[in-house]
Structure formats: C-alpha cells, structure tokens
Design a protein around this nucleic acid. Sequence first.
DNA 1: TCGAGATTTTGACGCAGATCAAGTCCGGCG
DNA 2: CGCCGGACTTGATCTGCGTCAAAATCTCGA
Lengths: 225, 225
Amino acid sequence: MSPSAVEILENCPFFADVNETAFRRLFAIARVVRFRSGQTIFVQNEPCPGMYVVGTGLVRIFKRTPQGRERVLHLVGPGETFAEVAAIGNFSCPACAEAVSPTTCVLLPLEPLQKLIAEDHELCRQLLLSLCLWVKRLVDLVEDLTLRDAAGRVARLLLEKSQRDHRKVRLPTLKRHLAAQLDLTSETFSRVLRRLELAGAIKHLARNELEIINKRKLEELARLE
Amino acid sequence: MSPSAVEILENCPFFADVNETAFRRLFAIARVVRFRSGQTIFVQNEPCPGMYVVGTGLVRIFKRTPQGRERVLHLVGPGETFAEVAAIGNFSCPACAEAVSPTTCVLLPLEPLQKLIAEDHELCRQLLLSLCLWVKRLVDLVEDLTLRDAAGRVARLLLEKSQRDHRKVRLPTLKRHLAAQLDLTSETFSRVLRRLELAGAIKHLARNELEIINKRKLEELARLE
DNA sequence: TCGAGATTTTGACGCAGATCAAGTCCGGCG
DNA sequence: CGCCGGACTTGATCTGCGTCAAAATCTCGA
C-alpha cells in the first residue's frame, strides 16, 4: 500500500516548517508518481519536469558518459527530495535519475512550484536552507573524492550508513552502485571490504549486510590520512 | 583606488534584481574589508563571519588536510560571492579562504543578513537562485574530477578561461593553485601543458598567458573521453 | 642591476587503483 | 529441482599520476 501525497509531503523534513496555507497550496499542485525497480525517472539534459519528494523506495541520481561510465552523485530515500535545483533554477536535468527499488514519489511540477516560490516567502526560505545542505553535502563529496584514498572512502560510507542502529549496516543498493558513488570500480570496492574484514574491522553477515566490529579503526581510516 | 560598498554591491549580478528598498538595507549592513595578497580571510571550522562580495582582486576557497594537502574548490573574482552557504545555513566555515591578490570585499555580517533574508522575500529568491548556480557548479566539479583524466580537466579549464576573448588565455593565479583545483600536482599540470603544446593545441606566450591554436582538439579532450 | 627565494619544468621511479579475465555465488524461473 | 544470467569475488597485469630530486626560470626588493 503506497502512501498518499499528503503523507509523503508531511514526512519530508524539508516542508516541516512551512505554514498551513503554503502546505495546502503545495498539496494542491502535488502529483503522485510511481516507478518500477530499475525504471528511469529522467535522463540528463532533458527538460526538468519539476521537483520530486520520495515517499517510499530509493532513487539513484547519477551522471553518465557517452562511453557508459557512471558516477553516482546521490542516493535519495524517503523524506528526501531531488531535482530541486533544476526545478528552481529552471535549467535542464543535470543528471539522470533511476529508481533502485519500487518507488513512490510526489512530483511538484515546475511552473506551479516556481509560482508558489515567488509568492510564498516561508517556502522560499525553507528551500534556501535545504539548498545550503545540498551544497554542504556536495562539498563533502568533493573532499571525499579528492582527499581520501579508497579505504578511507569506504570507511566513511560505512560509518555514515551505520549511524542509525549501532553496529549492523545494510547496504541499500547494489555494491556496484555504491562503488560508483565513491569513484571506485566494484572490484576495488570488493577488495577493500575484504581487507577491512581481514583486519578485523568489519564482518560479513549476509548478502548486503555487515557488522562493524572495530569502529575506531574505521574512523582512523576515514580521518583524512 | 578601491571601490566603495555601493559600487561593489551594484557590480554583483546576484543583487542586480533586488528592489530599491532591499538594496538600501543591504547597503546599510555592508562593511568594506581589505586583504593583502596571500592574507587569510578565514579558516575552515571557525564560525562564519558572514557573506562576502568581491569588489576587486581574487579569492581562493580551499580545503586543507591535517597533512597540508589542499584542494581548491573555487576561485572567486569581482562581482562574485563566497561564504553565502555558511552564512545563510548558519554553519561554520566549511573551507578556508585566502586572498590571491590584493582584494577588496564587502562583508555582509551574519545576523543582520539573516534578519534581512527572513524579512525580504525578493532577496531570499535571489539567494535561492544563485545557490542553484553554486550547486550546478559543484556538480560539474564532481563530474570533472571523476569522469575526466588529467588532460581532459586541463583542456576544460583552458576552454572555460578563454570564453571571453577568443584565443588568448590569462591564467588568473599560480599554476600550483590551478593544479590543486583540478586535483593534480603542479608537475602533472606542467607536463600536460607541455604535451598540449607539442601536439599543437596551444602555445605559450608569456609567464601566465597562452594562446589556443586548435580549439577543436581541446574540445575533443574535454569531451568526456 | 643583482641575487635570494619562490615557482615552474623536467626526469626517474613507485604505487594505488583500473582493466582484463576467470571463476563463484545466488536468486528466479521454467 | 536444475539451469541461467547477473552480481560479486579473486587474481594477474597495466598505467596514469604522484613523489622525490634537481635544474631552470621568474620575481622582487635591496
């Protein structure tokens, strides 16, 4: 049973603080859209249909080269948003989006959304704040990609994914895609995990699940050399 | 003779569209600050003093590791801004800033700026739009760093810097810093330039000036492999 | 104009991680 | 239940770029 537009919007921290009126107006323009696992949501350079809010499932945002190499910029889960930048700035999709699992989103179409932003100061402020977070995240990504080595990047990923429950980590998607997010090949990703296991830092539990044995050691590796 | 606060703010495309009142209020909180060549403006992790608008000169925004490696995120010239993200999002400086040449800026201090944003819808929208550009630029940077090789990155830099006048390119700062921006060492940067020259794509004119002979070839190299 | 210090260039060499090539594991479907 | 195809692992080899070292060149102040 997939959630309604209201539920999705309410679950988005991003709109948590907008006032009643603004929320109703948002709701009025919202459309629920669904995607099968693996389905393409949009591809880079095509006009952006609007801003998406994820209700359930997982979406992968990535760049693709003519030759087929891919770089994952972001994995977007429930309560998070994507394509805000293109929607607000009114440029075409800078990247591709694809559902990693069966996914339900709210789509806030371009024109009415821009109109809303032009009219509602509160909404505008919210968006401004969350864009700041986006920028911060991207700066961290650049830092990660250029200042850390492979082991450091993997360690950082594991620590980030484990923040919820203490020790167990569920890898949310294919290792191949996680590797692409870290600018690694899946071979290297695999080898690094193996090394971490031999070093006693982690332990494989199941297919996409592992346990952090020695958090200290991971933090050491992630500590910018 | 360095420019006044009004001149600096007027020259910033970013505030070009804000209305008279908002502009006056901005001006009211603006402080002119000056930096010597090489002077540190702020360092990462310290509280952010506010948002800066460059009037004259050039500022280098970069991350530094404990071990002293540096990654240049951005070079900020006249009419451009920096630290907007930290100022608006109210977090500490995510990176270091340093004047590359003698520089005059306007500083819009944190609290009054935030107050202004909370009160002025138009200003808020402007900031939102320019943050979108920031995000776009960062996404391009990530793409550049991970999808292109050294020659491709250098080619892209040259093409970008040459957009004004057709063929001649002036390198705005030390090659060392440009190299750091591309995640290269200065040695590699130098070698790539040499190769491009041997291949007849460019020609050295003077210290920090070169000419693009074969634009086609550069575009080929930058064409994402 | 000269000279010290910084920047850049050039060369030799090493290594992290990519690429290529077999496997191995697993999940789904006939 | 057994087969098939995609995901993952593992090993061998290759290579782009970093590191170290030294020479060449520039800049700027005395």
